[in-house]
Amino acid sequence: MLEEKARIIRKHIIKMIYTAGSGHPGGSLSATDILTALYFNVMRHDPKNPKWEDRDRFILSKGHAAPALYSALATSGYFPVEELLTLRKLGSRLQGHPDMRKLPGVEASTGSEGQGLSIGIGMALHAKLNRKLYRVYVMIGDGENDCGQIWEAAMSGAHFKTDNLTVILDRNGLQLDGPTRQIMDIEPLVSKWKSFGWKVIEINGHSFREILNAFNRAKSVKGKPTIIITHTIKGKGVSFMEGAVSFHGKSPNKEEYEQAMKELG
């Protein structure tokens, strides 16, 4: 069931980026399985009532993976699936990077790397202050670990004991200019986050069993926030996009599009 949803979401991603003529397929496809698990299993949310006060919140800090978020939202029923093809077009609610004022279900306006985690801490603190039981989920890219603000936020998340916050680190190993270990080596990630006071869980980000299990474990952690480092493959699901830096921020051409859609079935 989740596998099937993920397959549909991947097809939407490819189709919308191809139609738009630009966008970020690689990081959208690496994040797809996690987003699918969140929107179709883990999170308490209501697509018919996107402003429901007690809903769980998801923030896509790596805003360039907007096509994955939009596909998950449309497939969940926040807006018509047909609207996905308006991505990046003039007048569309589907902006190149997420705009919380335009599209229902988008919780934060993101796109400038490194800010979503702090925003998520703000939402988690609001829940604590107002005795709300909602949980906050923030997805960050591995390249975002280059940003100083991520570590400011990491420190304060632990300091303020935001145990209602779960971060997903989409560890696909590639950033715009190349492999993270070449551009800016962020390892050792596990011990870094641990030393910042976080509960760290490491999983395969394409195994739904591991993903669901990790989110469950995160819910039971008290007194500190949790980060799930999900090892993923950039471009996952499309053979020639997998592990390819070139598909970080480029649309497939006609042949590539047809090949990708064929592979996704």
Partner: peptide, 25 residues
Amino acid sequence: EHHFNVGISEQNMMSIAAGLAASGS
């Protein structure tokens, strides 16, 4: 309870402020 000192991390402070405001604070 309603006062948060984030230390010398102004960037963090501004985005935390945004998250609080987006939630209704």
